[in-house]
């Protein structure tokens, strides 16, 4: 395995961008806005049985933020690196395997997703939210980041332009962010919508981050997330292995 240089390159680039105000604002502004607007504004009017709205919202925002950060940076990085800067071609011409490339990109995506989650977590705790932080929580968070980073690899490799990546984001990532139980419980939706929502991975990530216990129901969600992650990783490897200009 020789994934480390790919991972390290991404982390170095991430570190450079992190120092720019623009990056911090674009990566963290949206979840922060949701936290303040929904948590402090709408939250006072919404009743969630057994918990406060802030405690309900924060795990959802962490799931959403880890998803978008892990996915967006990998998808955009690969699209731009492959089509515009042609830095991706360096990997293809180097003696590394498709698995190395996917693992390097995926782990960098996980690191970015976790970084964004940690900031939200810190902010939520400052606002008085009580989260159940345990091994299941961490496992679910890492799985969620890995799954969407792997999805980012697929989208980044298949996009024929930057617009393609944006289209995919608008049609899959954005609806998931709103419908998978981030802001409100899914059990109040029509049953057919609930069936669809339950097939989407973010629903399971939300569920696991809210109720991170080792129960049979949670095991189902863990299996669903793992299956999605594994499927995306394998597909990403196949796409890169078949890459030809």
């Amino acid at each position: 395995m020789n994934w480390f240089p790919i991972f390290y390159r991404e982390i170095l680039l991430f570190q450079r961008r992190l120092l720019r105000l623009g990056y911090v604002v674009s990566a963290l502004f949206a979840p922060l806005l949701y936290l303040l607007a929904f948590g402090l504004g709408l939250g006072k009017r919404v009743a969630i049985p057994g918990t406060s709205y802030l405690d309900y919202l924060l795990p959802g925002l962490i799931a959403m933020s880890s998803m978008t950060n892990a996915y967006t940076w990998v998808a955009n990085g690969l699209t731009v690196g492959r089509l515009h800067f042609r830095t991706f071609q360096v990997y293809v011409q180097a003696p590394v395997t498709a698995t190395d490339i996917v693992m390097g990109e995926l782990l960098a995506g996980v690191a970015r997703g976790l970084f964004a989650s940690l900031i939200l977590l810190g902010l939520g705790l400052l606002l008085g939210s009580r989260l159940q932080l345990n091994l299941m929580f961490v496992l679910a968070l890492i799985l969620n980041c890995a799954l969407f980073a792997a999805l980012g690899v697929i989208v980044g490799m298949r996009s024929r332009s930057h617009e393609d990546t944006a289209t995919f984001t608008n049609f899959l990532i954005l609806p998931m962010a709103f419908f998978c139980g981030t802001f409100f419980p899914v059990n109040e939706m029509p049953w057919i919508v609930q069936v669809i929502i339950n097939c989407l991975p973010l629903t399971h990530a939300n569920h696991l981050l809210r109720f991170p216990a080792w129960t049979l129901a949670n095991l189902d969600s863990l299996i669903v997330l793992s299956a999605y992650a594994l499927g995306c990783i394998v597909l990403g490897i196949v796409i890169i292995r078949r890459y030809s200009e």
Partner: peptide
């Protein structure tokens, strides 16, 4: 297709590690 946000050394180091 160098990484222009990285230094000359970093560019060479990453490439060298790939090989």
């Amino acid at each position: 297709n160098l990484d222009k946000e990285l230094s000359a050394y970093e560019n060479l180091w990453i490439y060298g590690r790939l090989y």
